[in-house]
């Protein structure tokens, strides 16, 4: 019998990860339904127009799609991996000949699928209820695909790196969720970014979520809205550069700090 490659083991791990995810009803509800509930609340309460042809709901849908990248990658993994570390899953795997890369391929598959489902659900709700439109040009579609690929990769790697921060699996969501929620407030998901205090904007600009939301707006809002951004344009180049830089930081951080067992 020929031994499977790291990639084929990784794909099989991805299938198992998805199967386990679907069998945990709480995680399905928490990860998939919660953003939709938020969208329903915020989108309905703040439906006023914020610029010509742009409602707050549309602004918010773009922000929630960017948040979806953070929820399904960073938040999901930074909570899930400490639990697996506590339960001995990681140590057990380390004791087998499974290549380490297969484990991360499996996680990446789980994140990719949950990210696609979440973006699809948010977009579908945005289009059906909040006047969001799909991009009309090839350029914008390519921009969307690039944003999802790079943003999700960045978020996944940072989630793996951050998984060493919570001291235990039980406390993980108490450590990780506030980070995400605060970043969402600072990054212009719940409020219009340019309405935030200057210092808050400065802090947010260090982190990738601000750039992901701005990128999502550049896909879903009319180009005329670009003048309302901080720089007066979409800053597409800088957006991708900063997300890519965080990906590199996350990669180095993850490689240096990842542990297969609790100390």
């Amino acid at each position: 019998m020929r031994k499977p490659t790291a990639l084929s083991i990784g794909i099989e791990r991805g299938r198992l990860e998805i199967r386990q995810f679907l069998r945990q009803r709480e995680s399905v509800v928490f990860t998939m339904l919660f953003p939709l509930i938020l969208l329903a609340i915020f989108g309905s309460v703040f439906s006023n127009s914020i610029s010509e042809g742009v409602t707050f709901s549309q602004y918010f849908v773009a922000g929630m799609i960017a948040s979806g990248l953070v929820n399904t990658g960073f938040q999901q993994l930074a909570i899930m991996i400490p639990v697996e570390r506590d339960f001995g899953t990681l140590k057990r795997l380390r004791g087998t000949p499974m290549p380490a890369s297969s484990y991360f391929i499996g996680k990446a598959i789980l994140v990719t699928l949950s990210m696609l489902v979440q973006v699809f659900l948010l977009l579908a709700a945005g289009i059906a209820f909040f006047g969001v439109h799909l991009p009309r040009s090839i350029d914008k579609w390519l921009l969307l695909v690039a944003l999802l690929v790079l943003g999700s990769a960045c978020s996944t790697i940072l989630g793996i790196a951050f998984s060493n921060v919570p001291k235990s699996g039980r406390g993980a969501s108490a450590v990780v969720s506030p980070v995400v929620i605060v970043l969402q407030f600072f990054s212009g998901v719940f409020f219009i970014f340019t309405d935030l205090p200057h210092w808050m904007q400065q802090v947010a600009a260090i982190f990738p979520l601000k750039w992901m939301t701005q990128g999502a707006r550049s896909v879903f809002l009319p180009d005329s809205f670009a003048t309302r951004e901080v720089a007066g344009n979409w800053e597409t180049g800088r957006t991708f550069a900063i997300i890519a830089a965080w990906l590199v930081v996350g990669l180095i951080w993850a490689i240096r700090s990842f542990k297969w067992e609790r100390d």
Binding site: L16, R19, Q20, R23, Q24, E84, F87, G88, T89, K91, R92, G95, T96, P97
Partner: peptide, 19 residues
């Protein structure tokens, strides 16, 4: 390839509850 030849049964684990 060494790990291929050994088997490790660790102290109590609680993983893979959903498989």
């Amino acid at each position: 390839s060494w790990r291929d030849r050994i088997g490790i049964v660790l102290q109590s684990t609680h993983d893979a509850g959903d498989l």
